[in-house]
């Protein structure tokens, strides 16, 4: 009697073929994107989205073409930070057209589509078991988004990832080994501990790990112009990867983000300087990648 592998194909459902097809489509759609950069952290609320947004703005100011992809499907925040909540998704000749800020930064975020008073729900035909399928469904959704969007010609696609050390690993596999990673941490021991875990998870893969950013590494006081400590003066853990920049806490940066104003470089401050240093550093390291 024949066994599974004696029979060609996968039984008529062509599931494998279809998955391969869509991967091929994604490769084609991203073929004119020079650099893929994921902003990640094991932790939430450490400033991944803020940094992704500001980094994109700084790269744009350096003359690069940049699109931001919000991969946090549960808590999309880039639409808000970029001031694009009211945007429409329009089909262009080659797929979804990416909305742009007035500075020309492309921003693709489900926050432009599902308003903030609504939860993002993944329907399930197995009653009350939606959590079982949610992860698969999320990656499927994300994959459809990559395949159905016209990314055009870009210097940088900056991907803002959801929190979780294991999520970093899953996304690294999903996005492919060409995607470079930057990790974000706070100076606290707890945050550094979580990020360390992400580093060791990512080290198992081939993805370039450019380094990490220490966010809220101090408090910038506009009155006296000095950066004061915000967290207890902990020792920096050794992550074995370069420190790319330290960004102080600056209330004006938080305000700009809330107002959907992506231009942190409008004001001259230690935070803005740190973001520019980061952009320069990343550009140098990305160009050095094979």
């Amino acid at each position: 009697m024949k066994t599974y592998f004696d029979i060609a194909g996968d039984g008529g459902s062509q599931i494998v073929d279809q998955v391969v097809d869509i991967q091929e489509k994604i490769r084609h759609k991203l073929s004119r994107v020079k650099h893929r950069l994921a902003i990640a952290s094991g932790k939430g609320g450490v400033g991944k989205s803020t940094l992704a947004m500001q980094l994109a703005a700084a790269l744009r100011q350096r003359g690069k073409t940049v699109t931001l992809l919000d991969a946090d499907l549960n808590g999309p925040s880039l639409a808000h930070m970029a001031g694009l909540q009211e945007s429409l998704f329009i089909p262009g000749p080659a797929g979804l057209h990416v909305p742009k800020t007035k500075d020309g930064i492309g921003v693709l975020s489900l926050g432009s589509m599902v308003s903030e008073d609504q939860a993002i729900d993944f329907e399930s035909v197995a009653p009350s078991e939606s959590f079982t399928w949610r992860a698969t469904r999320e990656f499927t959704t994300f994959r459809d988004l990559l395949a159905g969007t016209d990314w055009g010609t870009l210097d940088y696609l900056v991907i803002d990832l959801p929190p979780g050390a294991h999520k970093c690993y899953e996304f690294a596999q999903f996005l492919g080994s060409e995607t470079a990673f930057v990790l974000v941490t706070l100076p606290s021991d707890v945050s550094q501990g979580v990020v360390r875990r992400s580093v060791s998870a990512l080290k198992k893969l081939k993805n370039p790990l450019l380094g990490y950013v220490e966010n809220m590494s101090g408090y910038y006081c506009a009155d006296c112009g000095k950066v004061k400590p915000l967290f207890p003066q902990n020792t920096r853990m050794n992550f074995d990867i370069p420190l790319l920049a330290s960004l102080p806490f600056d209330p004006r940066l938080a305000t700009l983000c809330d107002q959907g104003q992506p231009l942190a470089y409008l004001f001259d401050s230690p935070a803005a300087q740190a973001i520019h240093a980061l952009a320069e550093n990343i550009e140098k390291r990305m160009e050095a990648q094979p």
Binding site: Q14, I15, V19, V125, P127, E129, T132, W133, T136, T141
Partner: peptide
């Protein structure tokens, strides 16, 4: 329903 969900979660079409 679980088996159906497995397939639909992959976002593919059967045959």
């Amino acid at each position: 329903p679980f088996e159906t969900q497995l397939v639909t979660s992959l976002g593919v079409r059967i045959g």
